[in-house]
């Protein structure tokens, strides 16, 4: 296992309490609680439509939760109290504390690989071009893509795009990384290169929440696994328990179906 030593002893970095998100009558997330320690990797699994992506998007308020509480570091947001929910530039600043990687990569289509990594540093953090370029270059090297620096996203393979997207997410030195089914849109032979990068990040001590269908990755890299169904956490625990010896019937049948495929 690649879990870092401080994973269990570390301070609590992120805490969610009774988080709910509904769209009209549809409740996508129905009261979710979770705490993530510094350096911990939390994997979220579950059938499609179970609310795991919505949950992730609630964490950095890409979707505003309907109610519940979120704490990151020393800042607490109570979504039932309007005034505690950041908006405008405070919301933008809040979001920059997270790095997010998406299923469809979503690299900025008009910018080259290195510009994609730089733009957050120059626009959001107002660093100089030279400074941003130097750091962007070292991030591209870290994901093994230094030679693609001047290519546009459409000139890169899916796996390369996703690795650039990871470099972009790392650029602002986020406190927590959010991965939203980042290998689901990739051809099978490209999945490995992306998982390798995530594996390396985890062993370097990054705090990560990973929504995924890659059970082997969850088993090997995660410190904690949540199994979600219908917007709720059905079972959670260390990967050896949830993935190898699940107690809940729903978890069992989900995993059984999964292993058959």
């Amino acid at each position: 296992m690649t879990n870092n030593s401080n994973a269990n002893a570390g301070e609590i970095k992120l805490e969610l309490k009774n988080l709910k998100k509904s769209y009209g009558d549809i409740q996508a997330v129905r009261g979710l609680s979770l705490s993530v320690k510094k350096g911990q990797v939390v994997a979220v699994i579950g059938p499609s439509g179970c609310g795991k992506s919505t949950m992730l998007r609630c964490v950095n308020i890409l979707e505003e939760p309907s109610s519940g509480m979120l704490r990151i570091g020393n800042d607490t947001i109570d979504f039932s109290v309007r005034s505690s929910v950041p908006s405008g530039s405070r919301l933008a600043k809040f979001r920059s504390r997270f790095g997010m990687v998406f299923q469809q990569f979503d690299l900025f289509a008009h910018l080259t690989a290195i510009q994609n990594v730089m733009i957050g540093m120059t626009v959001v953090q107002r660093r100089t071009d030279a400074e941003a370029e130097e750091r962007a270059m070292s991030l591209l090297e870290r994901v093994g893509l230094a030679e693609t620096r001047d290519r546009l996203p459409k000139e890169l393979s899916g796996g390369q795009q996703q690795r650039v997207a990871i470099a972009r997410a790392l650029a602002l030195e986020p406190e927590i990384l959010l991965f939203d089914e980042v290998t689901s849109a990739l051809d099978p032979e490209l999945v490995g290169e992306v998982l390798d990068v995530m594996h390396a990040l985890a062993s370097e001590g990054a705090t990560m929440i990973v929504v995924t269908h890659e059970m082997a990755f969850a088993r090997d890299v995660a410190d904690w696994v949540l199994f979600m169904e219908s917007g709720k956490v059905v079972e959670e625990g260390p990967p050896q328990e949830v993935l190898v010896a699940p107690k809940n019937d729903r978890t069992k049948s989900f995993l059984a179906r999964y292993h058959r495929q």
Binding site: N60, L62, K93, F105, D106, F108, G120
Partner: peptide, 12 residues
């Protein structure tokens, strides 16, 4: 996706 990626890195 372009909008959400821009928001996610903290752009106003």
């Amino acid at each position: 996706g372009q909008w959400q990626a821009a928001r996610a890195i903290g752009m106003t």
